[in-house]
Amino acid sequence: MSMKYVDEYRDAELAKRIAEEIARLSEGKPLKLMEVCGGHTHTIYKHGVEDILPPNIDLIHGPGCPVCVLPMGRIDDAIAIARMENVIFTTFGDMMRVPGSHGSLLDAKAEGADVRFVYSPLDAFKLARQYPDKQVVFFAIGFETTAPSTAVTLLRARAEGIKNFSIFCNHVTIIPAMKAILDSPDLRLDGFIGPGHVSMVIGMRPYTFVARQHHKPVVIAGFEPLDIIQSVYMIVKQISEGRAEIENQYTRVVRPEGNVKALEAMARTMELRPFFEWRGLGFITHSALKLRSEYADWDAELRYEVPGLRVADPKSCQCGEVLKGVIKPWECKVFGTACTPETPIGTCMVSPEGACAAYFNYGRFSMASERTRLHIGPEITTHR
């Protein structure tokens, strides 16, 4: 596809033609494809992509929402730091309402903690310059997409000798999560829609194990409806031809080698943790980043004593199963009743990248359940 304008990526007639080709190639064979990234999940729900694809193609929503995969214990640790004297605690907006075991960062703010939302770690760093008598902590979350901005800010803090700034590092890495899903006994997948933004940083090579060891195709995809539909077509074409390769649909952004400078900045400032707990997936080895020892002066985990406890999710919440792709959001027993974006029980209902929030916000759950009940075929939706 060679396109210049966003409307071209939302052409309903072209989508329908590609969907017909997908149906022809797949011959009605049931296929489960996981879109790893929460941004893809958002596009799928918003634009009704599932309704355009043939009914034998089942899109499984993966753990690619960085807010959603943080376990409750790490939220409690963040709140504990935020409540400390003389601390300005900074975070991205969607982390404010994520529930810990005793409330959220927004609750802590309401009770007097100095919690501020920022758009980037650099914003937090500017606050440290502005308030030299305060300790400014940045709650660093995200996959490899956001880790470079944290790394660059750390390099700058060290170069300028700003010591009242620190990072509470919760960056996670996508490849170990994909390995954990592939090794999971309760889910069988036929292919992956690869994450576009993560791949912009890490490139294509890290996914090679999926094709070589597990014989599953991966197609790195963009974020418009036709990007995803074309990626599904590319996966189905590989399967129909008996191939399992790593392909790049998102060539306008993703290079095979990734972003070398971003990777260098990360390597200089961070290293892999021996293990890290993921909501729904448990402890995964080498699946998250921490600051290197030479950046200990900017490491909030070393600077502050935090509870560091493992906290179980509320029994009513099935966020873990949603993140693993074992159930769809509307199959959770509290979805849309006790758990809504205004009163979230689990993280998947908080972040706009969370599958439950996307389902709820776009009303996809009612359509999906009705279609399942009535066995209605896919309908064409236009979004222009």
Rank of each mutant, 00 (worst) to 15 (best):
V6R: 11
D7F: 10
D7I: 08
L14Q: 10
A15C: 12
K16Y: 07
K16G: 00
A19M: 13
L25K: 14
M34C: 00
H47C: 09
V49L: 14
N56K: 02
L59E: 05
G62L: 05
P71H: 15
A78W: 11
N86I: 08
G100L: 07
H102I: 04
A113K: 02
F117V: 01
S120D: 06
L122D: 07
D123V: 01
F125H: 03
L127H: 09
P132F: 00
D133N: 15
K134T: 07
V137W: 01
I141F: 01
F143V: 06
P148D: 09
S149P: 00
T153M: 07
L154P: 09
R156Y: 06
R158Y: 02
G191K: 00
G196L: 00
H197M: 08
I202H: 01
I202N: 06
G203W: 14
R212G: 02
H215E: 10
K216R: 12
K216C: 02
A221D: 04
M234C: 06
I239G: 09
G242H: 03
E247K: 13
E247L: 15
N248M: 12
N248L: 09
R252I: 09
A262N: 12
L263P: 07
A265N: 10
M266P: 12
M266Q: 09
M266E: 15
A267E: 13
R268N: 13
M270D: 10
L272D: 05
W278D: 06
S287T: 14
R292C: 11
A296M: 08
A300Q: 01
L309P: 00
V311W: 00
C317P: 14
C319F: 06
V326A: 04
P329M: 02
P329V: 07
W330S: 11
T337L: 13
C339P: 11
G346A: 03
E353P: 13
Y359M: 07
F360V: 04
R364S: 14
A368Y: 03
S369L: 11
S369V: 13
T372L: 12
I376R: 15
G377L: 10
P378W: 00
T382W: 11
T382Q: 04
H383N: 12
